[in-house]
């Protein structure tokens, strides 16, 4: 059996491609099944939510759970908190990382490589292994149990700096030189020439940060105590605990609501999500 035969669509080749398709479709069912179950169960009445068989098609949808979730818990507050935290971190990191990434790529200053080396070293250290000192610092700044506890420590990022630096590194130096001859200041060269060209990298960084901080559970669990400061993931887990198994459809309505912004963003900016996954690899 030669590969030429397969390329030409020989019988064996066609058979194996068919098998491949079946495997892919099965995998798609496994990937989508739980999400579909979550969505359709959120549209069943609380009374029948946990009765089997599940309903895979919402033929008789009951949207009551979506209003119930707002009445039974302050999910509106969770939504607002998550939005504030995520938006502030995304904006903050975009500013700090674009500036520092640009400096490490384009500007000469003493100690540049040493400082960048320290940044690279901190990138290797997982958050969970340093959470105790971070907690102590956050506490000493009086930030515990406030959204600032989540936002302020996340305003700078070694990874974000690295990502932006890699992007600026591939830009031609000549553009800046030309602008300099025309009398542009250092900041103008950055803002008017290079920062504008960095839009795709900024989008990738923003999407990565949105995904990470919108979904974050660990730091909220540690830094937040009162319900009115909870973000969505923490609030939903609390909601699951409070309501027990009685009205899982209400909990699932909350889960679906929490996913809506991510899905919407994915629909419009899928490219940058994919970019974000491959961003770290140096290839």
């Amino acid at each position: 059996m030669s590969s030429q035969m397969i390329l030409n669509g020989g019988i064996a080749g066609r058979f194996w491609r068919g098998v491949g398709l079946v495997v892919l479709l099965l995998a798609a069912v496994v990937a989508l099944g739980p999400l579909l179950w979550t969505f359709t169960t959120s549209l069943r009445t609380p009374a029948e939510a946990f009765t089997n068989p599940p309903k895979w098609l919402p033929t008789n949808p009951d949207f009551g759970n979506y209003s119930a979730v707002f009445q039974q818990v302050p999910i509106g507050t969770f939504l607002i908190n998550s939005t504030i935290v995520t938006v502030l971190i995304v904006i903050g990191q975009t500013i700090t990382c674009t500036l520092s990434g640009y400096a490490f790529a384009m500007i000469r200053f003493p100690g540049r490589n040493a400082i960048f080396g320290v940044f690279l070293a901190t990138m290797m250290v997982p958050l969970q292994t340093i959470i105790i000192p971070v907690f102590v610092i956050v506490k000493s700044l009086g930030l515990t149990d406030s959204l600032g506890a989540l936002v302020i420590p996340a305003l700078g990022s070694a990874f974000g700096t690295f990502l932006m630096r890699q992007y600026f590194m591939q830009m031609p130096l000549e553009l800046g030189e030309a602008a300099r001859i025309d009398g542009a200041s250092q900041f103008q060269i950055f803002a008017m020439v290079y920062a504008r060209m960095a839009a795709p990298a900024v989008a990738t960084l923003a999407i990565l940060n949105f995904s990470a901080f919108w979904a974050e559970f660990y730091r909220p669990l540690i830094f937040l105590q009162s319900q009115d400061t909870f973000t969505l993931p923490l609030g939903l887990v609390g909601l699951q605990g409070n309501l027990g198994t009685g009205s899982i459809s209400v909990v699932l309505a909350g889960v679906v609501l929490a996913m809506v912004p991510s899905v919407l963003l994915f629909v419009f900016a899928q490219r940058y999500f994919i970019e974000g996954v491959t961003a770290g690899s140096f290839r």
Partner: peptide, 20 residues
């Protein structure tokens, strides 16, 4: 399709998978 599960938070996944 294979990317979609990544759009849910691990907390959300833990909740609905716990039920399932």
């Amino acid at each position: 399709t294979f990317y979609l599960p990544l759009l849910a938070s691990t907390a959300a996944v833990s909740i609905f998978m716990g039920y399932m």
